[in-house]
Simulated assay, not measured.
Amino acid sequence: MATPLISAQELQERLDDVTVLDVRYRTDAPAGRDAHEQGHVPGAVYVDLDTELAAPPGAGGRHPLPDAEAFEAAMRRAGVRDDRPVVVYDDWSGLAAGRAWWLLRHHGHRDVRVLDGAWPAWVEAGGEVATGPSAPPAPGDFTARPGQMPVVEADEVLGVPVVVDARAPERYRGETEPIDPVAGHVPGAVNVPTTTNLRVDGRFRSPAELRALYAAAGVTGDEPVAVYCGSGVTAVHDVIALELAGIRAALYPGSWSGWITDPDRPVAGPTSGSP
């Protein structure tokens, strides 16, 4: 299996041989198409996270996984082929691009990588910048074969020996909750925020550094691991970091926004008296 990352320099060298997807997205900003048109990797196709990489919000949380047929159709529209490598990027430290990486891997694509350092790394490396809308690509032939990445659902989460919460520490502790209606975390979960996966230059830490970072939180790979965040999107950043560290982690797609749709599920945090 290919490494989950690609450098800006390597992407420049391989640009003619890969399909590039621009997954601009932020929770605090409008959809990223405008940003894409202001500047993107040449040939990159914009993919909308809310409509093409997620199902409508509901009991499964704010960003449930799309069904296989819808995802396959979206990737074919973006020109994704089974036999051609894919590179995904965003301008949000890989937090959104990771969702596309995970979905493609989960649905059977064998060579998908996230641009390490995201859009700033491309610009810093002197990569060519295209503007305006991308030309529609030739339709792809990607065939979705779901089930290639580990997943846990809500009724399985409490049975996973090691559960990682990828959100900011203050959200994990339940001191603030800017998005979801209930604050706190899944009982027993440990907190490894996505921001700690990166060096100051915005690129992922080395495998050795990541192993030490997660081991300090009790995540060693000796027992099964599951990761969640607010809506199942940014948790993939921790999944990628753990893969770099040599640890395979399952994703809880519903994450916190799905967990709290059932009031009978336990919540830990300041108001509960539980760690």
Rank of each mutant, 00 (worst) to 15 (best):
H107A: 14
G108L: 03
G108W: 05
V112E: 00
R113F: 00
V114D: 03
A118L: 05
W119P: 06
P120Y: 03
A121Y: 06
A125W: 02
G132W: 07
A135C: 12
P136W: 12
P137G: 11
D141K: 11
A144F: 02
A144T: 09
R145L: 13
R145E: 15
P146D: 01
P150S: 14
V151F: 04
E153L: 13
E153Y: 09
A154N: 05
A154L: 05
G159C: 07
G159V: 06
V160S: 03
P161Q: 03
V163Q: 02
D165C: 15
R171E: 00
R173N: 03
G174M: 04
T176D: 14
T176Q: 11
P178V: 01
P181K: 11
V182F: 01
H185L: 09
G188L: 10
P193T: 01
P193Q: 05
T194K: 05
L198E: 08
V200R: 15
V200C: 11
S206A: 13
L210Y: 08
Y214K: 02
A217D: 08
A217Y: 01
G218E: 08
G221L: 04
D222R: 14
D222P: 05
E223D: 15
E223A: 15
E223F: 11
A226R: 06
A226W: 01
V227N: 03
V227K: 01
V233L: 09
V233A: 13
V233R: 03
T234P: 07
V236W: 10
V239M: 04
L242Q: 10
